[in-house]
């Protein structure tokens, strides 16, 4: 789990597939890559069996580019569409039982801190709405209550897409699905408020129709989770099969949903703001925090 683990053993280079050689020689490991450079470097994500035009795939692609240190990152996932792509990347992926991803990540994150000390090793959970808000809710909430320092990302497609279209806790009220023919009778769960109450230091909602914003929030969430506390990102990643969205209209749908119920929200604690500003040179919190900071004794 470092830059070295992807490199070839001496003499084996000529036997490796072209994609692998490209990834070692022109991948993002050890460099800083951004969304605006996409298309000019080899990405860590490879070909995968997810559906054509899937917004979740786009989000995962952007997330992998946004990781601050992809060579020092481990992803953790669970049952759901996302694992089909997350597992096809040159980033170690741990596949837990359904719903235990935040429990697995807690142990992994603690173990890495014991083994590597101050050297940052990032743990990022990427699971669907079923894994995060329904079946894994207990472990998700308790990992936040315990202030486990890793990032949880919910890939919210508002349905159980893998198993034929059952409603999930994140499905909108009234939504009629193949396996919910009478329409959902309850409201969509408010996981953002739950995350704030449970003690997350950074919480954001995003839609993948703004790649730079996705990059920005994931970077901040992973950095905050290194030292300050748990971070949570909730991303709308539509299912174009279960919601019958034509593939070329996926971004149109994302825009409509963003305007309807997925407006960009960002919550960050003062401690996390200070950490990002002082440690990583973030300037965006300076203007907002300048006035209150002046009134804190010992500051300024």
């Amino acid at each position: 789990m470092s830059l070295d683990y992807v490199k070839f053993s001496n003499g084996f280079e000529k036997f490796m597939p072209k994609e692998y050689r490209d990834m070692v020689e022109h991948g993002p490991f050890g460099k800083k890559v951004t969304v605006s450079q996409m298309g000019s470097f080899k990405e860590v994500l490879e070909e995968h069996p997810m559906c054509a035009g899937c917004a979740m795939t786009l989000f995962i692609r952007l997330a992998m580019i946004a990781f601050p240190n992809p060579e020092d990152t481990i992803t953790v996932g669970t049952a759901g569409c996302g694992r089909l792509a997350i597992s096809q990347a040159a980033i170690p992926f741990v596949y837990g039982n359904y719903g235990d991803q935040n429990g697995v990540a807690s142990g992994l994150s603690r173990g890495l801190r014991l083994r590597f000390g101050d050297k940052p090793k990032d743990v990022v959970v990427m699971a669907g709405d079923g894994g995060t808000a329904d079946i894994g809710l207990q472990q998700v909430l308790h990992s936040w209550f315990r202030k486990e320092r890793f990032t949880t990302i919910m890939l919210d497609n508002e349905v159980y897409g893998n198993t034929g279209g059952q409603e999930s806790g994140m499905t909108n009220r009234g939504a009629v699905l193949k396996m919910a023919p009478l329409g959902k009778k309850f409201e969509k769960m408010n996981m953002v408020e739950l995350a704030k109450v449970a003690g997350c230091a950074y919480v954001a909602t995003v839609v993948p129709n703004n790649p730079r914003r996705v990059e920005s929030v994931i970077k901040k969430a992973v950095l905050v989770a290194r030292e300050i506390g748990p971070s949570y990102i909730q991303a709308y990643t539509s299912c174009n099969i279960e919601y019958a969205i034509p593939t070329d209209k996926v971004m149109e749908d994302a825009k409509a949903v963003e305007n309807d119920r997925y407006q960009f929200q960002e919550y960050i604690t003062d401690e996390a703001k200070q950490y990002l500003t002082e440690r990583y040179g973030y300037k965006e919190f300076l203007a907002k925090s300048a006035a209150p900071a002046a009134s804190i004794p010992g500051k300024g």
Binding site: S36, M38, G39, G53, T57, L58, R61, M64, P211
Partner: peptide, 16 residues
């Protein structure tokens, strides 16, 4: 504009 490279759901498919 390079927008297509940022919005393609598949990695390393639209290149520059």
């Amino acid at each position: 504009c390079k927008l297509c490279t940022q919005y393609c759901p598949e990695a390393n498919t639209i290149l520059y």
